[in-house]
Write a protein that binds this DNA or RNA. Structure first.
Lengths: 201, 201
DNA sequence: ACCTGAACACCGTTCAAGT
DNA sequence: ACCTGAACACCGTTCAAGT
């Protein structure tokens, strides 16, 4: 049943052309539906229509698949932040929270601590790009020596807000998208970043 | 066969007096050593010296044990925050980050999203006490109507900072306690909370 | 009341064997 | 090169049976 040479074989032969991509897609869908904890390699394989050993041709083990999914997540997050960042720092912050709320399980996988960044090449780099983007964005606002701290504070703020919203820790956070967006705006609006750090005691 | 009537039996009969507590302690130790992902009920039982089915007398399932561990965590976090809060809001924030760094896996369990707060009675209440303490602490600083937003912002800030530090997302965060504490101070020092929210566009 | 041992269905991982 | 099926050690959970 593939395009050029072969016509209507009964069963697809080995795979549908790119099993690695197919597995990542299937796993991504299952991840978002049910979370990391119950995401099994065997179910992914079943769902992709291959034997339970087939994924091992493309991923060293379950952790490697999870790391690939997290890597995709960091890349998409960076893209979303860069796109929104053009409309200013506040839009960037809101985009961060949006990403978390729209890809809940992916976000949890990225920051849940199941994956050690050091153990997976490329994953740390993908994560670092997110931070770099923030530092660049804050350089004009906080001055050269203040930028890393301001960027760290800003990232912490939106990251914590996203995480606590996901967990439902704020009273009344079960409301709709509209109300959540307003809550996010109001929380972010209350914060100011000082141009320079003060002596800390 | 209990304390009064029995002297030196060969083997302890059923358990060492309070299996529930023993399991919680063993599980807490194993959790901190190896993380949630690989914490198995069977290993806890083995490590506590009972059969693998014994824990089910005290916990409905693995999730219930994890929820109990998380509940302990929220209670201890609240205590630590109240104690430090007497020395001012900044000390409270630093105590939050300290707790996360000193109980890394417990903290991840509390906020990793493996447990749905609604599914475990008492867990949400324990978590809510943390937020309540923050709102009370921010009432004098941010005014009555600003307090919830300021408290949410403050919690988000220290929570995100803790989480990102745990994951090693800040360059150079592999240094010692001293340097980490200084970094935390500098990041927190850069943030100001406005008395009232401004129009958001 | 509290714990044990066997049993079941599932999983991650490996490996010889197939095409 | 890429995939399969059997196999192994492990796990969560249940349940009849022991004390």
């Amino acid at each position: 049943m593939t395009t050029l040479s072969r016509k209507r074989s009964q069963k697809a032969p080995y795979h549908h052309g790119d099993l690695r991509t197919a597995i990542l897609q299937t796993a991504g869908k299952l991840l978002e539906e049910q979370g990391v904890a119950t995401l099994s390699l065997r179910e992914v394989a079943r769902s992709a229509g291959v034997s339970h050993a087939a994924p091992y041709r493309h991923f060293a083990d379950r952790d490697a698949l999870l790391a690939a999914l997290a890597g995709e997540g960091f890349a998409r997050l960076s893209e979303a932040l860069e796109a929104a960042g053009a409309r200013g720092p506040r839009a960037r912050g809101e985009a961060y929270v949006c990403f978390a709320l729209e890809h809940r399980q992916r976000f949890r996988l990225m920051f849940g601590g199941l994956l050690r960044l050091d153990a997976h090449p490329g994953l740390r780099a993908a994560a670092a790009r997110t931070y770099d983007g923030l530092v660049r964005a804050f350089a004009p606002l906080a001055g050269p020596q203040g930028a890393p701290f301001a960027a760290a504070a800003a990232w912490s703020l939106v990251h914590g807000l996203a995480q606590l919203l996901l967990d439902g820790h704020f009273p009344g956070s079960k409301r709709g998208e509209r109300e959540t967006a307003a809550f996010v705006r109001d929380v972010l609006a209350v914060v100011r970043f000082a141009r320079a750090a003060q002596p800390s005691d």
